[in-house]
Design a protein around this nucleic acid. Structure first.
Lengths: 246, 246
DNA sequence: GTGGCACGTTTGTCATGACATTCTGATGTC
DNA sequence: GACATCAGAATGTCATGACAAACGTGCCAC
């Protein structure tokens, strides 16, 4: 059952060796070369065959175990997990998700303005009340239908955001390309009935069930970089989360 | 700014050294001895002071970085994150969550029976259609009010489950104590309006917004161990999720 | 005064070696 | 034939050593 998979290493590349190994194992799993349940060679043999040390191999395998692709068992070996794993653990925005699903999301910017932070917003962003924040309100469409009403607050001066580039790209994508490195996000997910205003904007009936999500994202340093309060049409959208226990 | 924290090691303990270190740093953060933003000693010094090697220290720190408690920066050092981090990444059940929140959840078992698996259930559990599965239906109360309607399917023979122990303990707790080690779970979260039957059971009005969650949990080996389809009263409950990007 | 460059500090990556722990399967005994 | 015991195999943990890369700071030149 041990699979012999070919792994090319480029020692001159700036990409770490353990990452090169992890990527190629991951690709072999995705392509079916390593079917679910198949066992990898043991770490010593792998290290030997690739001309690497065992810690490097272990780091590569650990990386994939953390992502839920592999399972280790002492005394047994390392196997590809049986169940198919949806990989949506990452910090993505609705825009990214839709793009990946092959949709072509469209965004209409309803509001984009610098305002003094209200008390509640200032608190979650860790700013002084009254500090300047960027408030935005957007509607996201997919397949020609309204999907979500997005409301965001950001500390001022974080990234150059205009109605134009917000129409064409997702907020997270823009933040990332402005050098903002998001690391942790808290999300609270709930549901409620649509108000008359929301119903009109989202082409639903008043009282229709909506999915609500309040999210605050933090960067490297633990500084809040984004706070959002979003509502989704429950009839058209659901959230997917994958949990991995270490 | 470097904090001198006292760490006791017990080399005779079966608890790994890196874990002992991680636990005590974690405790120092929780207790406030290491306030947000404070810097840890560098890895070499820490290793030296504790009489450990650098890889061991790194492993301890990495463990806490993965949990979102610490932040490393090359050329700078390791710091405690600024933002408060809710730690609900773990694989828990509603019952656990309520208990931790100081509530006293009550469960009423509506159904508990062995049935042949229908096609859809068999598919997600990775069983043959018609294989025997345990079907259960429960209502969960908190503070005297109905909170959720829980519907589960499990492969037969996984754990000795009776209406009695299900009334007194959570499903995940029972599974864990039966030796089932859950590792990965996929959750799909949505919302919809209550049907008349659901409304009656949950003490809501017909059409009231409900939060829906469909979850499949897998064990060590990637085998499905539980499939659930639950509905929550949106007026009384919301889900919290924390994402950490590596 | 300001910009660029060099330097020290700290984490990131990788190699080698050793022993402990745990699971599986085979062997042997009752 | 069934159960207990033992050996092999694999991952888990830990130590030591070395070099690379990135970040911040201070110095120096213009």
């Amino acid at each position: 059952m041990t699979a012999k998979l070919a792994i090319d290493l480029d020692r001159s590349s700036p990409v770490p060796l353990y990452f090169q190994v992890a990527e190629q194992i991951s690709e072999a799993i995705r392509s079916g070369d390593l079917p679910p349940g198949s066992r990898l060679d043991n770490e010593i043999m792998l290290a030997d065959r690739l001309g690497l040390s065992r810690p490097t191999i272990r780091q590569a395998i650990q990386y994939l175990v953390d992502k839920g692709l592999l399972v280790r068992k002492r005394g047994v070996g390392t196997q590809v997990v049986h169940g198919q794993v949806k990989r949506s653990v990452e910090l993505t925005s609705l825009y990214d998700d839709l793009r990946r699903a092959g949709q072509e999301p469209v965004t209409r910017v309803l509001a984009l303005e610098a305002v003094p932070a209200q008390e509640e917003v200032a608190a979650v962003l860790g700013l002084e009340p009254g500090a300047e924040v960027l408030r935005m309100e957007r509607i996201r469409y997919a397949a020609g239908e309204p999907l979500a009403l997005l409301h965001n607050w950001l500390p001022a001066g974080l990234a150059p955001l205009t109605a134009e580039n917000l129409s064409e790209r997702g907020l997270y994508e823009l933040l990332r390309s402005a050098g903002v490195r998001m690391r942790v996000a808290n999300q609270r997910i709930g549901a409620r009935a649509a108000t008359a205003v929301e119903a009109r904007l989202l082409d639903e009936r008043r009282g229709a069930p909506l999915l609500t999500m309040v999210r605050t994202a933090y960067d490297d340093q633990g500084r809040a970089v984004e706070h959002g309060s979003h509502i989704y049409r429950a009839s058209h959208y659901s959230l997917e989360v994958t949990l991995i226990e270490r």
